[in-house]
Amino acid sequence: MANESRRQQSRGAKSGRSPWREQAESYLSHHHKVARDSARRLWQSPLASMMTWTVMGVALALPVALMLLLASLEGVSAGWESSARVTAYLGDSVSIDEAQALKATVTDDSRVAEVELIDRDTALEEFRASSGLEDALDYLDENPLPHTLLVTPSESSRTADGVEMLLTVVEGLDGVERVQVDLGWLQRLNAMTDLLGRAVWALAMLLAAAVVLVIGNTVRLAIENRRDEILVAKLVGGTDAFVRRPFLYTGAWFGLGGGIVALILLQLSLWWLSGPVERLAGLYRSEFSLNGLSLDGALALIIAAMLLGWLGAWLAVKRHLDDIEPGEIAGG
């Protein structure tokens, strides 16, 4: 009824402003107002808000810090994987021509980037030069070394699994006697980062749930504090969405603050740790370095924090707002 009359009124009074546009503008300005009002309320109780933000910040910073550490570790193992090469020792009876043919076969494999053939004579020369056993080698009747293929995996196969697969393929070739690759410690590191990765995700889930509950509880208190307002809003025809809106914004603002606190904590601990980490990595001659959050990562963290806050508020609102019905106002 009222809507209709207003629509007609605005149509008559201001041509050019379509009613739906007017409606949309007032909807947006209402959102704007509610968002600002919710933020102001948080600001008005700085100590309580700060505490909630800090709790959220710590809960968010912990899993993110672990994830960053993991990413750094994976960077290390990726560096080593690129240097992983498969060494295939051919049988003694394999001639140099057959070795050339084998090399061609292996090169054709898409998982292989490069194959180097070291024939037995070259190998012996190298061995002689590097081992210092020249005299001893002279006593040998014949060259004991086989032809050798040095297989470098293609980029996409430079993972522990990829190398493993390549290993089996090369091993299965006719004429290949023994295949060697030093993957043991790489696999162990990978297994460890896998395990750590899962543990971090589990921890992240638990802490996210904790964040949702903390925000939910805080918003529940806010709902109790604004009980009268909710009653009146429902009395004068406020929809559920209207009544919920300020609290959902409150949750999102809590999330924003928590995300920012988490970012600050991360940067501080990174700054505090970076010196010792570099020294330790230097001792291991490792390229390892602790990486902070990228801009995208920081944005993702803040957005995730706001979503968690919103979700917590939504749960609280769902749970407690429906209980507040204006029935009790009018008395007996």
Binding site: H30, D228, E229, V232, A233, L235, V236, G237, G238
Partner: peptide, 28 residues
């Protein structure tokens, strides 16, 4: 609706109290 105990909100001005039904409706 008018109540015996008015149901006014004391955290805002008279103007804002009266404006509530309009805000709820999304009035510009």
């Amino acid at each position: 609706v008018v109540f015996q105990n008015h149901q006014l909100l004391f955290d805002r001005t008279v103007f804002d109290n009266v404006a509530m039904p309009l805000e709820v409706m999304g009035t510009p």
